[in-house]
């Protein structure tokens, strides 16, 4: 219940115009920054460490998240936007996520601490928020053929006969 009140308040207080950032369909600039800050922590061990490859991977995760969000039903898009609003609105980011700097300035350990806090929160709504961010991010990267070599996965050879 507390979580619902916080979510509602954040949605109401979040005054930033909700326009997509340049080149994106659904994510605002601040939301894209959030994704870019969470991705290296959620996907640690699965995204490349080489600087150039890492940038490419992070760009692709943000683009996939944006595509995914734009492709959701309007009701679910609204819920995800509410969650993103809660996390990008500075007061709720600090109070509910416990992150006191902006997302681009947050350290990886601060991001991990936030995720762990929500992962085992006594509030169902915060656990749901953790699951949403974690699973969306993982789906965005693991569906990308660039991610497959690290997990030893490939399409079967026979697929070449018809694809």
């Amino acid at each position: 219940m507390t979580g619902a009140v916080v979510l509602g308040a954040a949605a109401w207080l979040n005054h930033e115009p909700d326009t997509p950032a340049q080149g994106l369909r659904a994510l605002s600039r601040r939301e894209a920054e959030l994704i870019r800050a969470l991705a290296p922590v959620i996907l640690a061990g699965m995204i490349p460490t080489d600087a150039t490859a890492r940038q490419t991977a992070l760009n692709e995760v943000v683009e996939a998240f944006d595509r995914g969000l734009a492709g959701m039903s309007l009701a679910v898009q609204g819920e995800v936007k509410q969650l993103l609003g809660l996390l990008t609105f500075a007061p709720s980011r600090a109070l509910v996520a416990g992150v006191w700097t902006s997302w681009p300035e947050a350290s990886e350990s601060e991001v991990a601490a936030f995720l762990m806090k929500w992962q085992s929160s006594r509030f169902v709504l915060l656990r749901a928020g953790y699951q949403a961010m974690k699973q969306l991010m993982q789906a965005c990267w693991f569906g990308n053929p660039l991610a497959w070599p690290a997990m030893g996965y490939a399409l079967p050879d026979r697929a070449r006969e018809f694809l």
Partner: peptide
């Protein structure tokens, strides 16, 4: 498959990727 396994396995970061790297 990668997405199905990825979102079903719990956790994130190293705890999660230890399993994902051994998907086969």
């Amino acid at each position: 498959h990668p997405i199905l396994a990825g979102i079903t396995l719990q956790g994130f970061g190293e705890e999660h990727s230890t399993w994902m790297r051994r998907l086969p």
